[in-house]
């Protein structure tokens, strides 16, 4: 048995012991990104059906317009963050082996970060250069 340090409250001792190592911040960020995603997804759907099958010049012209480029960038940032939080929960729910779980959690963060960066780079390039 570990000796209990008198200065530590029971809450301090319990913190960080759950499978997620945290709680409220994850929930809050998940909801904030979800809220942002609602209008951004509506705009993304508009973009999707507008540009599906369009030729290169049309796509470039679309992203030349700053509002379009900025809204799609916001969609990408908010989505990437939301994806990271969402898959984290799925990993924590189904992967019980500690090593695989940590590897998957790291992979999840790197994947979503790369996804966001790749998309933003492409949008900036389309918007400013073509």
């Amino acid at each position: 048995m570990r000796m209990q340090t008198p200065m530590r409250t029971p809450l301090k001792q319990a913190r960080g012991l759950g499978s997620a190592r945290g709680g409220a911040e994850h929930f809050w960020r998940q909801r904030i990104t979800a809220l942002a995603n609602v209008p951004l997804t509506v705009f993304f759907l508009y973009t999707l059906v507008t540009l599906a099958g369009a030729d290169h010049a049309t796509v470039v012209a679309y992203f030349k317009f700053p509002i379009s480029a900025l809204l799609i960038m916001l969609f990408v940032i908010s989505s990437a963050w939301h994806m990271m939080l969402g898959l984290q929960v799925i990993i924590e729910d189904y992967i019980h082996h500690e090593g695989f779980k940590i590897a998957a959690l790291i992979g999840n963060i790197l994947f979503t970060a790369f996804f966001g960066l790749i998309c933003i780079y492409a949008i900036v390039k389309l918007s400013l250069g073509g």
Partner: peptide, 14 residues
């Protein structure tokens, strides 16, 4: 979303 990233990067590639 891999498809979205692929589509965007292909458009940026020319």
């Amino acid at each position: 979303t891999i498809l979205l990233a692929w589509w965007l990067i292909s458009a940026a590639s020319g």
